[in-house]
Amino acid sequence: MAAEQRMVSFFSPADLTELIQLYSRHPSAVLFAGGTWLLGREQKKIPVLGEQVINIGGIDELTRIHRTERFLEIGAAAPLSLLLEQAKRVLPVCLYRCLTSIGTPAIRNLAGLGGNLSNPEYRMDSFPVLFALEAQVELIGPEGSRRLPIPRLIDSENNLRLKPGELIQRILIPVESFTEELYWKHEHNFWMPETHLSVTAVARMEKGTISEARLVFSAFRRLVMRHRELEAELVGRVPPLSQRETEYLYQELDSFFQAAGPIPRELDRRMLILKALDFLSNLGSEATIPVPGRY
């Protein structure tokens, strides 16, 4: 309880090279970029951030947004608002919708995607979307840089799989086009994680047939689920889905959520499933959603 005079070493490296050197010397230092979470949870006048803090917000290499032929490359500390404005035309619709649901417009002028992914309380906003888009993260550290597919960024304990002194430099989103994209998030407010549910879906159609579909679900700000077998089964189907197909998909997803989740409440499972079925059934048509037999 006693408040002693706190001595904080606060580093502000000028560029990426200096940052990597500093961070490898102080691998337990707190990285401070947008800082919206670090400061928002510490509602004291002088926040307690840690004994060593490295300020990475001003590093040019971490704030660039760049598009190559294969990837949209987003600097981990690029403010979300910058991303929403500069890359509006090239951002996948589901990611655009996801980003506009994070924080407030003023907070998005500070917060970045790297911070969102690094934070176990926040990451269920962008993580499932980046998972569905099959994005990669580029990590940089004392041993150089490497790339990880998004799902491999986090271990089973929900910790980042980073080596000491390693940090997220960029997020790479493959340049692909989809026929339809969905991002839907439901939560009463951020501080009620038990109310959080989200569905991200992308699909490609060829001649009226589903040629690819990806469905990623998140729940309670801690679970992320993707049913790859079911995605494979969707390929070749022709929307609108028949009643039988819908019933089958409903049962399949319901068992998946009960097993993989667990998502104990039927109404929560139902919400996720129906949002996904609604998406699939409407692919490439104006058809209305068929009601599964049991409902």
């Binding site: 439901h186 009463h188 009620m192 109310t195 409440r265 039927e266 109404l267 929560d268």
Partner: peptide, 11 residues
């Protein structure tokens, strides 16, 4: 009356 409340009552 929040959506959470509606869900609980419906259940």
């Amino acid at each position: 009356i929040t959506s959470e409340r509606l869900k609980e009552l419906e259940e």
